[in-house]
Computed example of a mutant assay.
Amino acid sequence: MPANTELADFLRNRRARIKPDDVGVRSFGARRVPGLRREELAQLAGVSPTYYTRLEQGQSGNASEAVLDAVARALALDEDERAHLHDLARPRPARRRRPSRPDMARKGTRQLIDALGPVPAVVLGRRNEVLAWNALGHVLLAGHHDRDAPDRPADRPNLTRMLFLDPHTRDLYRHWDEEAARAVASLRLMAGRSADDRELAELIGELSMKSPEFGALWSRHPVRDCTTGTKHFRHPEVGVLDLQFEALHLPDEPGRRVLMYSAEPGSPAEAALLLLGRLSLAGGRADGSTTPPAGPGHRLTRTL
């Protein structure tokens, strides 16, 4: 979606959620749409209605930081939304693209996540594609994929695509709606920073076409930088476990991050994670056997 269309969509969405009475705006006459009118928002931001209209229509690419901050305050945007507004209103110049090469995790990054041992870890690209995972990260998130799948760009797993289109991944999350909302909000933020990313646009288009749930969430224009929190799993091998996650951005590789999971010390989740770690090393099952259980979605190393 073009950046100026994204900007218009975002500003209209945020105007619609503000009730005039809540910001001291007296309402005259019937309102055709909910929320503030353009001229009312412009007055709150201290800019002319004409200027704000041009901004919302994507016709003011040189808007100053002061103006954007004033609009953000008038819309009561949080920190992530404010950054997103700046990204959309003042997009980075399109980069001259060289012939693309498959994105791969660095050797040092792979060594790092493998050395984490009992900590599930995944290296993600800017589009949430899996560039690498350690043994425990693999069996926690996608044991039904081949362990070496991230090394093959043609069928590389993508956590967001899996969340919406893979029934096994959907079953993995006890609070799927919460996880889906978080994924879309994070993808929105990345899309604002990478307006010229063709592959990202294709992913968004694919998910919009194939998943009505993704389309509905995307239309709400959620924005959130999801770097920490709790994920609630229902794993086919070890059952229920709640894990904290941290996403660490790699400073010299924009858009890439290492996603790691941990359990509260002494908790049932820690015991389940340790059991899963032993299974990942032994290729076994929670019942002590070494033959994978029957049925799709329950095998640790089946290629999807």
Score class of each variant (00 low, 15 high):
17 R>D: 12
184 V>S: 10
136 L>Q: 02
82 R>N: 05
245 F>E: 02
5 T>V: 13
297 G>H: 12
71 V>R: 10
178 E>Y: 03
146 D>G: 01
152 R>Y: 10
296 P>K: 09
56 E>Q: 05
212 P>I: 07
46 G>V: 13
218 W>E: 03
13 N>R: 15
174 R>K: 14
278 R>C: 10
152 R>H: 15
263 A>Y: 07
287 D>Y: 04
65 E>F: 02
138 H>E: 11
242 D>Q: 04
213 E>D: 15
17 R>A: 14
65 E>I: 07
83 A>Y: 04
295 G>I: 04
97 R>K: 13
279 L>H: 12
45 A>K: 00
212 P>M: 12
102 P>T: 03
16 A>I: 08
186 S>R: 08
8 A>C: 04
162 M>K: 07
88 L>P: 06
232 H>I: 12
14 R>S: 11
186 S>M: 12
211 S>V: 03
196 D>Q: 12
104 M>T: 15
68 L>N: 06
125 G>V: 00
197 D>R: 12
35 G>Q: 02
95 R>C: 01
189 L>M: 09
139 V>E: 09
255 G>M: 09
276 L>H: 01
125 G>L: 10
28 F>G: 00
232 H>A: 02
60 S>T: 11
120 P>S: 12
238 V>R: 10
291 T>V: 15
295 G>Q: 06
55 L>F: 02
277 G>V: 06
240 V>L: 08
220 R>W: 07
149 A>L: 11
